[in-house]
């Protein structure tokens, strides 16, 4: 099976977008827990937000490096 660079690149970009959104939402869950908790029906508590935030920290850093690396060094195959 041939490695599809475009697919990988797109996957990194979209994964980075998803992880960034989750980081932001869980960040809200930590800082503004009085608002986010009730808004999510008690699902996103401050403690759960911390767990998500901590869990995603390393994936976020890796995806950020990949995302920037792809943009800087792989010019999307454009000529």
């Amino acid at each position: 099976m041939e490695f599809d660079m475009n697919l990988a690149r797109r996957a990194v970009h979209y994964l980075f977008l998803v992880v960034t959104i989750l980081m932001a939402v869980s960040g809200f869950g930590i800082i503004d827990y009085q608002i986010v908790g009730p808004l999510t029906g008690g699902l996103l508590t401050k403690t759960f937000s911390f767990q998500i935030h901590n869990f995603l920290a390393i994936p976020f850093a890796i995806l950020l490096i990949l995302h920037v690396g792809i943009v800087l060094f792989l010019k999307k195959g454009r000529k």
Binding site: T20, A24, G27, F28, I31, D32
Partner: peptide, 18 residues
Amino acid sequence: VLTVLAIICLWSSGCLKL
């Protein structure tokens, strides 16, 4: 749009809150 949204998120999530 995404950049503006990210800045708004950071601001209102407390990272830049005054």
